[in-house]
Amino acid sequence: MLELRLVQGSLLKKVLESIKDLVNDANFDCSSTGFSLQAMDSSHVALVSLLLRSEGFEHYRCDRNLSMGMNLGNMSKMLKCAGNDDIITIKADDGGDTVTFMFESPTQDKIADFEMKLMDIDSEHLGIPDAEYHSIVRMPSSEFQRICKDLSTIGDTVVISVTKEGVKFSTAGDIGTANIVLRQNTTVDKPEDAIVIEMNEPVSLSFALRYMNSFTKATPLSDTVTISLSSELPVVVEYKVAEMGYIRYYLAPKIEE
């Protein structure tokens, strides 16, 4: 038996919008730790890792570890039927082939049940070791979204370089080139507007902008984004999900042939 009650149901709606274009089908894993997902995109270039800790739910009952295969497009369709202020409860029976999403309006005058069919999904689970990153950039998520969108109108690949001067996002395409440099800025009124660059070693890596743009679908989840870079390793783009967890995107770099 599984029953997870999330008062801030809009978080789950936003989480789905952040991953459904990247991954078609995925297993949601439920354990005493929380509600989690790890999945790759169909071309195995990017990986998404989601964790919503059990403490973040108003009620969290998970009698035994459960893995539920879901089509994220269909799940998104169902969650779109929940109001932004609704409380969402996820319910499933052990060994069952459906999951139920229950939506309660804040005033309790509307209660809806949506039952979705589960599917068997064969998925690889990758072990991601904790790494010391050469450079970590924290910046407003809206700024990162803007940069990815702007650069993708010029080119297909972004080069992200961190030096002691700051962080540079560059691209090149048929019509020309673009470079955007951000400098550390911590003298801001609101901490979420800060640009914090932690450089242990300079680093420069190339990534497909198409994926970066897809990651920025998570922008509504968090005011800030953290980009962790190390030479010859996938970049990690992390958005916090309120106080309850995170969504992390891992993207393999490109190299010049």
Binding site: H44, A252, P253
Partner: peptide, 14 residues
Amino acid sequence: PDKQFDITLFYKDL
């Protein structure tokens, strides 16, 4: 032209 790495090259299958 750039070569795109596969993410599975970096992390071990559990």
